[in-house]
Amino acid sequence: MAQTISATAGAPTLEVRNLQTHFFTRAGVVKAVDGVSFTVGRGKVLGLVGESGSGKTVTGFSILGLVDAPGRIVGGEILFHGQNLAKLKEEEMRRLRGNRIAMIFQDPMMTLNPVLRVDTQMIETVLAHEKVSKETARQRARDTLGMVGIPSPDERLKSYPHQFSGGMRQRVAIAIALLHRPELIVADEPTTALDVTIQAQILAEVQKLCSQTGTAMIWVTHDLSVVAGLADDIAVMYAGRVVERGAVAEVLDKPLHPYTAGLIGSVPSRNKRGEPLRQIPGMTPSLLSLPPGCAFRTRCPRAAEACLQEPPLGEILPGRETRCFRPYLPAGEAAA
């Protein structure tokens, strides 16, 4: 679209500042997202990493304005080309969704409506945002299916989702996300449910498409190896907060936050054969009853008196931010 290209190259596509999304349940307030900040630039991929329950998916839904009751965004800003999405009216948000901001879901078996044909589900997406004829919309759908590597798209358009394999369904979902050449895609663990070989294919294609179209992408995952191969930047989440962010190579090489270090240490391939697998002791705390101060304190090997206070997210090294009073500094003890 015209306005996409005219956007200034320097400004980030998306900037999230101290986002807070809370769920007001009967049992209490669940602070699913409580201080998330990151930026994604044009054509860049941000890996949003964390364990399940760390708030990464809710962050994704917050960006698209898809947080359902009893949850709602209670603080922070989501700046999309400088426009705060958190303040947009539902109808304005709807016009952005699927158009300039798209989302890909985790489980391809569940994201396509089982009783509607693929063409219906694609054409309706085109028609939701553009006044074109049904035939033009179908043409666009067919081209996009071809683009994501689906053979004989004409035939496939007339199929129902259950006639596709998991990998093919995820390609369809990706094609739907790409229909309007969005400026931002939020991908919520889109390859987790797939076979490793399919995963590799899809990753490669997504990477190619992003760099070709200049689409910014937030790749939500718990899999560090995917992030290592795909992302430019990384933001690590723990208990609803971003605890570390920076360029992917630097963070993975020399993590600052003890949690990031623990996460990297837990990847089996990083351990030498015969060595016991490393692990982070303890369990993810319940978001209903977070300990005061640093949420990771109870599991942290470096916890100290100071950690009873809540650490701020601060730039400790150039381009490196972490939320920790006692980070692993490169000059000090070596990380892992």
Partner: peptide, 29 residues
């Protein structure tokens, strides 16, 4: 609660279309 309803909303469909096509057609069966 189904993912495909959320996905339909994520596609930017109007609430009416989500309700009357995506939800309604499924419960009609």
């Amino acid at each position: 609660l189904m993912d495909y309803v959320k996905f339909a909303r994520a596609k930017g469909l109007s609430p009416a279309r989500v309700t009357y096509v995506h939800v309604f057609k499924n419960i009609l069966i």
